[in-house]
């Protein structure tokens, strides 16, 4: 496969990304590609304009009774909402609301059974199990929502026009707001037992601090969100380290990039 074909392939992936039909891992890879290619970003913005326009075609007349009911319900909630501040409830969103509705339905059906059965203890056991299962599902939902929010933020940041991009030989370091990402696409494969490790140099410091370790995929691509506040970091670096990471770099850095 030559470079031209490879780029055409990637541009088709960009179209899929603009339409929003790529699974998480491939979406991150395309975002990394876009972070490093200005002309690809230009086409992406064009194609996403088309995808955005598609939403218009979904507009549906809502029958007046439903519309009025929805509005009444919404405004009642709005008027009861505290004027400011964080509202943890709102983070739970639709999934968890439905999950709890399902939980309540389960609990209600079990309670009905209790009233009509002599096997109370057995049903109580089932209720406990249902509660435990619901607790576990709720935790999973919360975790999935956090991951989803993090992914959404990362995908937004990597292609954003107002992101700062710092080129490195293997791709780019992308900074947006207080967030820092590596969008690397030319990382050589490493021997078994070795990983890439990120390092950060706090502003005013003389020694780097260890950050996370990562490995590229088979194509040499890695997208990494660094767990640091960009405003406090003067430079980032990557080196090859033993699996599990090191407390200080043990090899010559793959790159060092000031970001302030």
């Amino acid at each position: 496969m030559n470079d031209r074909t490879s780029r055409d392939d990637m541009m088709e992936m960009v179209a899929l990304y603009a339409l929003g039909v790529l699974p998480r891992e491939e979406a991150a890879l395309v975002a990394a590609f876009l972070a490093n290619d200005e002309s690809a970003r230009a086409e992406y913005f064009d194609l996403r304009a088309s995808a955005d326009a598609l939403a218009y075609s979904a507009e549906e007349p809502v029958d007046s009774a439903r519309s009025a009911r929805m509005k009444e319900r919404l405004l009642a909630r709005v008027r009861n909402e505290p004027p400011t501040g964080s509202i943890a409830r709102r983070r739970i969103g639709l999934n968890a609301g439905w999950l709890w509705a399902a939980s309540l339905a389960t609990a209600a059906s079990i309670l009905l059974a209790i009233s009509s059965s002599v096997q109370v203890s057995s049903l109580q056991g089932r209720l406990s199990q249902a509660s435990a299962r619901n607790g576990s599902l709720s935790t999973q939902v919360t975790q999935a929502q956090r991951e989803s929010q993090r992914d959404r933020q990362m995908l937004t940041d990597l292609v954003s026009r107002d992101a700062r991009r710092y080129e490195v030989p293997q791709g780019a370091v992308v900074v947006r707001g207080d967030r820092v990402y590596f969008a690397l696409s030319k990382l050589p494969a490493l021997p078994k037992g070795k990983v890439y490790q990120a390092w950060t140099l706090p502003k005013g410091a003389k020694a780097v601090q260890p950050s996370l370790t990562f490995s590229p995929n088979a194509d040499g691509v890695a997208v990494v969100a660094l767990p640091v506040d960009a405003s406090k970091v003067g430079a980032v670096a990557v080196s090859v380290e033993p699996e599990g990471g090191s407390k200080s770099p043990t090899t010559t850095p793959t790159f060092v990039r000031p970001i302030s």
Partner: peptide, 23 residues
């Protein structure tokens, strides 16, 4: 599919001239 990025693609006046029928 992954979520769509929420911003970054378009300027203020984008889509302003569109409506459902035109799309």
């Amino acid at each position: 599919p992954a979520d769509l990025p929420l911003e970054g693609a378009l300027d203020d006046d984008v889509l302003a001239g569109l409506d459902a029928q035109r799309v």
